[in-house]
Nucleic acid binder design. Structure first.
Lengths: 329, 329
DNA sequence: CTGTTAGCGCGTTCAA
DNA sequence: TTGAACGCGCTAACAG
């Protein structure tokens, strides 16, 4: 394997000089920069990040923590998109990410996790699927031992950012739009899991909307479960004008229930997952670009690595109408 | 951060001795072993794998290469299962895996990829979603620079294993079962993508079965596409007794077509994905435990790391009948 | 601006 | 059976 030493020799400079041009240090003449780059190119040299990490104690390594909720299946698509967006961007930005499924390390205490991750050279965390109940993740974050980005969270501090869409506005808009399209007044809202950060925002959007439009609003907790949404719909939808759901999965449950009840009610979802096409009907929903969210999470992590302060990042979304035939391939 | 040095000091031995007990070297007295282990425990010492890798040049690090086919969506669930199985087992066995989406490095030549991965300290590869067309992956494998495990492949050599279920037998059995249950004779088989390894096996199973049971067999290439399967079904299913598909996704396409044609034909899928429940009908399929396959792939990689020869690993599967209401949660 | 040097945490000879 | 010493490839002072 060819190392920095070879490059130094070939370009006739010292190892440290090579290191400097590699890391874009100031105080290197353009001339030697060129020489070194030339040698790097000729030798097809690729820096060894392992050694760099060991030496600098600053790795730019991030642990991608996936807190998969085993009770949702649409989440596969969503998580996969987050993942692919994040991992691809990480490769571009030269940050190494290692994926962990949280179930696997959940038996450790926060301290143990910190020690473990630190000893593996991680100094960044990207958390996907975190809920309000994950106290040891909270501890991880509060320890400020890592630069952390929480996807779909709301926590920020000096070393912690979060990225998501503006769930409040998105829920408000899609609901308003669907309600106006269908001239409804009595609304059934099926909310997602209580412990999820996004649920609160979406629910409070619905409350505002109900006030603003003078609607009758019934809110029930669907726990992000298709089955639960199905039951709730069976029970309450008959004397409502519309069913609005906090996720596509629940919207599917609601639609299937409506079909069995043999009544029509407009249904509105949230997320824009492909799965939604499979119910064979048309439906309004908020489409999130999960890959883009994942990518921006890495971007934000990079910012934190560079010493900038944590902040909240809000990304764009789309209001769309999905239909089976538009989706299948 | 506490290092091997601290452990050495605490247990009153040399660094190298600690290293030896860490790596289970012979010629260490039980007595000192105990002392060292004691110190490790007391200090909550966790070895730094980065440093170990740098020092030994043998990392036990593996790159998890996901060749995602952007044209299938059920694959999200499947890939996610592979991933989670592999990553969890990797943590248990102490092999570090870093995930790559192949699209991201596909612009590099095989040589470049090798250099890149080597310089990052990888000496193992786990490939998911590889097809016969991926020549640069072939080159990667043939270079024998890495210990490699191919999921759902058939390539083996000294440093290369592959793991999957027995696709031939599984296809044979599920088709035979469904045909007997419904007493069919004229079979439409919609095959998966030509360049996928599993497709050949499944097709040849169907050929054998047709011969053994004296069936009329029409084979069409559905390219693992729901839409394509839909079209094929529209075109050919009317004068067939059954539609057998090389994947659940295509089975869904077929079933939707049959519904629109308003005729009944038994349909048979392959994979056992959750998505299949969403069509709202009952269907025979082969259920694969993808997480288990992923986990076994890591196990196999570990074997290769230990210097054992590559081989083909066949894992169990199940013949099942899936129905919507059994699946939703 | 450039080169020398001292580690980073660990594995691995080679003497003792 | 143990330990001292070297080096993996690189970064970071520091001296020049």
């Amino acid at each position: 394997m060819i190392s920095i030493k070879d490059v130094a020799k070939r370009s006739g400079v010292a190892i440290s000089t090579v290191s400097k041009v590699l890391n874009n240090y100031p105080y290197v003449s353009e001339e030697t920069k060129l020489k070194v780059r030339q040698a790097i190119h000729e030798l097809n040299y690729v820096p060894n990040t392992i050694a760099a990490a060991l030496s600098s104690k600053q790795s730019g390594r991030a642990a991608l923590l996936i807190a998969m909720n085993p009770r949702t299946q649409a989440i596969d698509e969503i998580t996969m998109q987050y993942l692919s967006g994040a991992i691809n961007r990480a490769l571009e930005l030269n940050v190494e990410v290692v994926t962990f499924f949280l179930s696997m390390i959940a038996h450790m205490s926060a301290e143990e996790i910190i020690r473990y991750l630190k000893s593996q050279g991680f100094d960044g965390l990207l958390i996907i699927g975190m809920t309000k109940d994950d106290i040891y993740l909270q501890q991880l974050i509060e320890s400020e031992e890592f630069c952390t980005v929480v996807v779909d969270g709301i926590i920020t501090n000096k070393h912690t950012s979060c990225v998501s869409i503006d769930n409040y506005t998105a829920q408000y808009e899609i609901a308003k739009k669907t309600i106006i399209e269908n001239t409804c007044r009595r609304v059934l809202y099926i909310a997602g899991r209580r412990n999820e950060y996004v649920t609160d925002e979406r629910v409070s959007a619905m409350r505002s909307l109900a006030k603003d439009m003078d609607l009758t609003l019934m809110i029930r907790n669907g726990e992000s479960s298709e089955k639960k949404a199905r039951e709730i719909t069976f029970r309450y939808a008959a004397n409502k004008d519309i069913v609005i759901c906090g996720s596509d999965l629940m919207a599917i449950g609601a639609m299937n229930a409506l079909t069995e009840m043999d009544i029509f009610r407009p249904v509105c979802g949230f997320d824009g997952v492909t799965l939604m096409g499979y119910v064979g009907k048309q439906m309004n929903t908020v489409r999130q670009d999960f890959a883009n969210i994942g990518a921006n999470a890495i971007l934000e992590l990079k910012r934190l690595f560079d010493g900038e302060a944590g902040k909240r990042v809000l990304l764009p979304y789309e209001l769309v109408k999905l239909y089976y035939l538009d989706i299948i391939r």
